[in-house]
Computed example of a mutant assay.
Amino acid sequence: MNRTARKLVTLASALALSLVAAPAAQSAPAAQSAPETYWTPDRMRSAVPLDAPTVSPWRVRATVPTGEPATVAPLAFPNGGSAWTGGGAVVTTAGRVFFTYQGRNASCSGNAVTSTNKSTVITAGHCVKLDGAYHTNVVFVPAYDNGNAPYGTWSARATKSTPQWEATEDINFDVGAIVVSQLNGQSLTDVVGAQGIAFNQPRADNMYAFGYPAASPYDGTKLIYCSGRTFNAFLSTGIGMTCNMTGGASGGPWFRAFSEATGTGTLTSVNSYKINLIPTWMFGPYFGADAQNLYNLAQAL
């Protein structure tokens, strides 16, 4: 990992930390109950959003992948961040991820995907591990509704990240996976459904991003979406989209070939980081071989 990449990761982690450790956060008790019972409605409502890491453009050298355009034509009807009212499968496959990070209760977003074990949720790497340690008390709450869990609170039995995120928290590989335990004798995707997932897809595409942003001006109570044409990121090897979502949206799914009628699509990235001077852009990691290996590892557990 080169010096500029290390600076990027260090700055991203530091800024994420400053937001997560806000005074309003509720501390986790020394002796914790099972995750599914620990996360009461009040604890979910008061969890501090783990912000998408924010980076300063002058601290890193631009890196644009070759063979793809740096900018592309926008989607005809782009959306920068509105409440999703369309219904469909995404309402139940998407949800909030809650966890304890450095003694604080925090939140991200995630999405259930098709998997062999019917129990795999894809999210961002920093939503399962940050600053050298994996989070504890991890749960997935599909279709989260202002403290309510209409489809249950699903406890993680395993959390994983890409080798690069595991080793150095490299923002280029900010992908995580959560494998949840059964609930009431049922597997997750048998209850809430699942979205498809794909790798090595075109970088420039019409895509939809979803999440539960909980930092102002959002409050974490609604599923928010963005839509538009993706473009190559210039501070990482990932992709970008015009999107106003804030902290708490990290780990939310990016779909290609998304149908507004059915709420289904193919997951090919997740909300990862933002640039502090351009808050209207969101960036996600490109899902290549390493993301695919992570998915295969998770679905086999």
Rank of each mutant, 00 (worst) to 15 (best):
A25G: 10
I178G: 00
T153C: 00
S56P: 01
V55I: 13
E169W: 00
T4I: 15
S115A: 15
A24Y: 08
F173R: 02
A62R: 12
I171K: 05
Q299A: 04
A257E: 13
L297H: 14
G248K: 03
A30F: 08
G193E: 01
N293K: 13
P279C: 00
S115T: 11
Q32L: 08
N146T: 03
T168K: 11
A177P: 11
C243G: 12
F234K: 04
P41Y: 00
F234N: 11
A214G: 12
N244K: 08
Q292N: 06
V64I: 12
N276P: 05
D42W: 02
V60G: 04
V138A: 07
N296E: 06
P279M: 03
A112L: 08
D190T: 08
I171P: 01
S56R: 01
I122E: 09
V192N: 00
M241E: 14
V121L: 09
M1I: 14
A158L: 15
D190C: 03
W58G: 10
N293G: 11
C226Y: 10
S82I: 05
N184I: 05
A209S: 15
Y225K: 04
F287E: 01
F99T: 12
F210D: 02
A194Y: 04
A149V: 02
F234E: 10
I278N: 12
A25C: 12
N271P: 04
S227T: 15
S109N: 07
Y218V: 03
